[in-house]
Design a protein around this nucleic acid. Structure first.
Length: 207
DNA sequence: TGTTGGATCGGT
DNA sequence: CCGATCCAACAT
């Protein structure tokens, strides 16, 4: 199965631009890896060093976030909470370090494979409902770090078969971030059962 | 070299 | 609500 080059080129152009339109445009796009394809239903935009305290690139370039400073269309994969992987699509021009976190998706191909990686799941809608669950369903880990997503590699991002219309996109504060609660940079396809549950960030007091 | 807490999840 | 479980980032 292949997609028209013109669609991929259009997506590349979108990702090379400002992060908020890129985030909105990623809704409905398809991400394939490890024998599973998801239709993206929820994302979050992160600005680079440009005053976004929630961004992993906020304090400048480090080995972990280095790929964010490169060209758009590459995967920024990070490990968190000692056990989970999450994936972002790098956006904007080189040096800007903006990215879009893929928070949730609907599994549209490879449901059985996804289920084999997510054995605790009951409903199909929960297979990729949450950023770490999405990576688990697709088998994405550190080996996907820095990969270009619009080529013929093992992790592929493709344009939406049916783009999510602007009127069907809801927005709200980002999940799990310590500050910037007033910035509505979480976007989701309204009414989708695959969208992750909103949890306000609660700092831990003890360990 | 040591300390701290995180763009989470699943079970209770 | 809590515990799991690693490691990046920063302080010393």
């Amino acid at each position: 199965m292949s997609y028209p080059d013109v669609g991929v080129a259009g997506l590349a152009e979108l990702l090379a631009g400002p992060v908020v339109p890129a985030a909105r445009g990623l809704l409905g796009c398809r991400l394939s890896a490890g024998g599973v394809t998801v239709r993206i239903t929820e994302v979050e935009a992160y600005a680079g060093t440009a005053g976004d305290p929630a961004s992993h690139a906020h304090r400048g370039r480090t080995p972990r976030n280095a790929v964010m400073f490169g060209p758009a269309g590459h995967a920024y994969v990070y490990f968190t909470y000692g056990m989970h992987w999450c994936v972002n699509v790098v956006t904007g021009p080189e040096g800007e370090a903006s990215a879009v976190l893929l928070r949730a998706g609907e599994v549209v191909e490879g449901v059985e494979v996804a289920r084999s990686r997510r054995t605790a799941v009951r409903r199909d809608a929960d297979l990729a409902r949450g950023p770490a669950r999405l990576c688990a369903a697709l088998g994405i880990d550190r080996t996907a770090y820095g990969r270009y997503l619009l080529g013929d590699g093992p992790v592929r991002l493709r344009p939406a078969a049916e783009p999510v219309p602007d009127t069907a996109i809801a927005a709200g504060p980002r999940v799990g971030v310590t500050g910037a609660h007033d910035v509505p940079w979480r976007f989701w396809a309204d009414g989708e059962p695959t969208v992750s549950q909103y949890r306000r960030h609660v700092p831990r007091t003890r360990r």
